[in-house]
Amino acid sequence: MRGITRDCISEMFSRKIFWVFAVITVLAVVVIILSGNISISDGSFQEAEVDIKDINEMIGNPIIRVFASFVSFLVILVVLATAGLIPNMFIRGRAEYFLSKPVSRTGLLLNKFFGIWFSYGVLVVVCGAIGYCAMYLVHGVAADNLIWVFVLNLVSLFIWLSVTSFAGIVFGSTTMAIVTAALIWFTQWLLQWHEYYKEVISSKAITGTIDVLYYIIPKTGELSDLTVQLALGRNVDNWLPLYGSLIFAIVLLGATLAIFNRKNY
């Protein structure tokens, strides 16, 4: 790793953003403490002909949803906080420092990429674990399924980092890295309803293009839904949002390396 991961950690601690995470975690703990742990009992619906299991299944436990949202929010914050790290590494005057060292460009970029993913991933897990502890101590919620919240949010972070790294290398700009990530997020949000578009759009060429885009673009919105379902202990039939998004991220990372290896600084 040639010390790049260690440097990523030291860089993270030196930034003010570290304290933003601390403040948000404290706020999240307060929200978790104040949130209700809803568990519907038989007595609540004595008059109604409703199966309690179905209702529980339908709404899930709000405290788990709050917790999953909190970890997802941390990932969004990390994406914004780290979007500039790779373009800043290769600004004029700094690129020369890194690229003149006896490390291949591929090694340099991958070490930085995984250094960011690891250091900020650990930060997300630590902040999430604090929220988890609060949830357990106050509400007694401690399901094994909650491990999915951590695992899939780390996958989500990997996907978004591949997007910001790609834009960071291509455009050399933090702003463009954030804008690209926002555009992809908006596109995947629109494409969530790709099946509905077929009902309102008659052109097969357009609906076909929408379908192709749906399969290409990472489905992080659906990945968040999938995370919540798994955290609530529900069965998941469609794993496409997970592996489709992962394939996108790996291909994009490969393209980033190919471009970086040919780029002049």
Binding site: E11, R15, I91, R92, G93, R94, E96, Y97, S100
Partner: peptide
């Protein structure tokens, strides 16, 4: 390098 900008942290 000329006009170098070493990592400020």
């Amino acid at each position: 390098p000329e006009n170098h900008r070493f990592p400020g942290h």
